[in-house]
Amino acid sequence: MASTIKDIARVAGVSTATVSRVLNHLGGYNEDTEKKVMAVAKALGYRKNENARSLVQKSSKTIGVIMPEVTTAFYGDIIKGIEDVAYEYGYSVILTHAGSQGSRIQESMNLMGERRVDGLIIVSVELHEPAMESLLSLDVPYILISTKTKREDAPYIKVDDERAAYTAVKYLIDHHHRTIGMAGANPEDPIAGAPRINGYIQALLDHGIKVDLNLIKAGDFSFESGKQAMQAFLEDQAKITAVFCASDEAALGIISACFERQISVPEDLTVVGYDNSKVSSMSIPPLTTVAQPLYEMGKAGCSKLMDAIIHHTSIESQVIAHELVVRQSVKKLS
């Protein structure tokens, strides 16, 4: 038969209230009492009934994560960062997918309400006003990762995608590339697509390079969209010397299409990616890419959320610094 708080109190010679305070780290007892209670609890094999405790406290000890339909490996490191922090606090994590372009966001919100999550993290999903109203109606702390909304009070963690894309294209220009294509971004995506395209365009304009919209091949950040972009460049007979890709997977699609056609990277075509996901260092050649600290973003987002849940603090937004990771996929032109 499982031991109870009353059993611990009887053996330790203290009140049940003192045992409860010790086990829940509420203070109001001395060090000797704490050691005695914990030793007796261990000896009796006591285990907290977290389910019963959560009902009393109206807490599920669960963090909800809503993310888009997964078509790339982008999310793995973010989720690992979230889970590592949540588990340190004794919280579970439940994931749900909001579908392509957030088509199932309402269903995801409803699920989180039914599961009585204590906090919510939304990754890379654009939230329109109805979704924001549903989110606020849950009345739990929340934070956005790699996305933001028009509401200034909605806390987020993300990289400045426009500046990061600018950095990558400027690096290509500094290596004497003048005819630079772009691949893999969805121009209708205001979170990651449009800002990265804008950064690409602005870098060209600031360096006196004419913008040719035919050199921008849209996509969904996937490997396949990179392959399709390279096919389109070839069909157009585009005289590009470099391609800036909106994701590492799109960049690998470009490299794969080049391999199939015996186009050497970087000797014949320079390629730069975005994200610094694990695949970027595994490609041949290893990929020069813009680094988003994905794992750190997940950890930071969950840490802020846990502080809000436990200490009732407000969550401050944070812009995370990007970095260009230089590998072997770029050739400097003479």
Score class of each variant (00 low, 15 high):
Gln228Thr: 00
Gly199Leu: 00
Gln231Trp: 00
Leu234Arg: 03
Ala218Thr: 08
Gln231Lys: 14
Asp220Lys: 06
Gly226Thr: 08
Gln231Ile: 00
Met230Phe: 11
Phe223Val: 09
Ala232Thr: 03
Gly199Glu: 00
Ser222Leu: 03
Asp206Ser: 13
Asn198Ala: 13
Ala203Glu: 09
Gly219Pro: 02
Gly219Tyr: 07
Ser222Gln: 04
Val211Trp: 11
Gly199Asp: 03
His207Phe: 09
Lys217Ile: 15
Asn198His: 07
Gln202Leu: 10
Leu213Gly: 05
Lys217Cys: 13
Ser222Met: 08
Asn198Val: 01
Phe223Thr: 07
Ile201Ala: 05
Lys227Gln: 11
Phe223Gly: 06
Ser222Trp: 01
Ala218Ser: 13
Phe223Arg: 07
Asn198Arg: 14
Lys227Trp: 00
Ile209Thr: 10
Ala218Gln: 10
Leu234Cys: 03
Leu204Tyr: 09
Phe233Lys: 10
His207Asn: 15
Ile209Tyr: 12
Lys210Leu: 13
Lys210Ser: 14
Gly219Asn: 08
Ile201Ser: 07
Ala232Cys: 01
Leu213Glu: 15
Leu234His: 03
Lys227Glu: 14
Val211Pro: 04
Leu234Gln: 10
Lys227Val: 03
Ala203Met: 07
Met230Leu: 14
His207Arg: 13
Asn214Ser: 15
Gly226His: 02
Lys217Phe: 05
Gly208Glu: 09
Gly208Val: 06
Ala232Phe: 01
Lys210Ile: 11
Lys210Phe: 07
Tyr200Pro: 12
Phe223Asp: 00
Leu205Asn: 13
Asn198Ser: 11
Gly226Asp: 02
Phe233Ser: 09
Phe223His: 07
Glu224Lys: 11
His207Asp: 10
Leu204Lys: 12
Val211Ser: 07
Tyr200Val: 07
Asp220Ile: 03
Asp220Ala: 08
Tyr200Gly: 02
Gly208Thr: 04
Phe233Trp: 05
Ser225Arg: 02
Leu234Ser: 05
Phe233Asp: 08
Phe221Ser: 06
His207Met: 11
Ala229Leu: 07
Lys217Pro: 03
Ile201Trp: 07
Gln231Tyr: 02
Ala218Cys: 04
Phe233Arg: 08
Leu205Tyr: 11
Val211Thr: 12
Lys210Gly: 06
Gly226Ala: 01
Ser222Phe: 02
Leu205Met: 12
Phe223Ser: 05
Gln231Asn: 10
Leu213Tyr: 12
Lys210Arg: 14
Gly219Leu: 08
Ile216Asp: 08
Glu224Met: 11
Gln228Tyr: 00
Ala229Tyr: 00
